[in-house]
């Protein structure tokens, strides 16, 4: 397979690194959550790509079609679950950010550390 044929995997790796970098390097708590979301989304693309077969169709039984190629539906189902988990994680994270803003008056990590001293 050529490098271009692996385009989706390159995209997944790129998004993964962008998300991971944002998560580590940014001091703003909202930006950290955004980074986490991008990081998780890259995994969704990775999974969906795995289930795709060239020329594959939706996995609905075709009458008399013996040589029909079906794409694997399971990665989609798994990722549907993972998306729900991702939404829940963001919700908990963002509500924590609200509480932190109420308690500290800021959502910048370095300012929170100064406050805590």
């Amino acid at each position: 397979m050529s490098a271009l044929g692996l385009f989706n995997y390159w995209a997944a790796i790129f998004l993964m690194m962008v998300g991971f970098y944002t998560l580590i390097a940014r001091g703003n708590l909202i930006k950290k959550i955004i980074g986490l979301n991008i990081f998780q989304t890259s995994v969704f693309i990775l999974y969906i790509t795995m289930g795709k077969i060239t020329g594959g169709t939706a996995p609905i039984f075709v009458e008399g079609g013996r040589d029909v190629v079906y794409s694997n539906p399971i990665p989609h189902v798994l990722i549907l679950t993972a998306i729900v988990v991702g939404v829940a994680t963001s919700a908990v994270g963002l509500s924590l950010v609200i509480r932190i803003k109420e308690a500290y008056g800021t959502i910048e990590e370095d300012e929170i550390e100064d406050e805590s001293l």
Partner: peptide
């Protein structure tokens, strides 16, 4: 109130 930042830190690392 440090419980909030502790929880947030755990959330980020745990999710990763």
């Amino acid at each position: 109130r440090r419980a909030l930042t502790a929880s947030f830190q755990y959330l980020i690392m745990g999710s990763v």
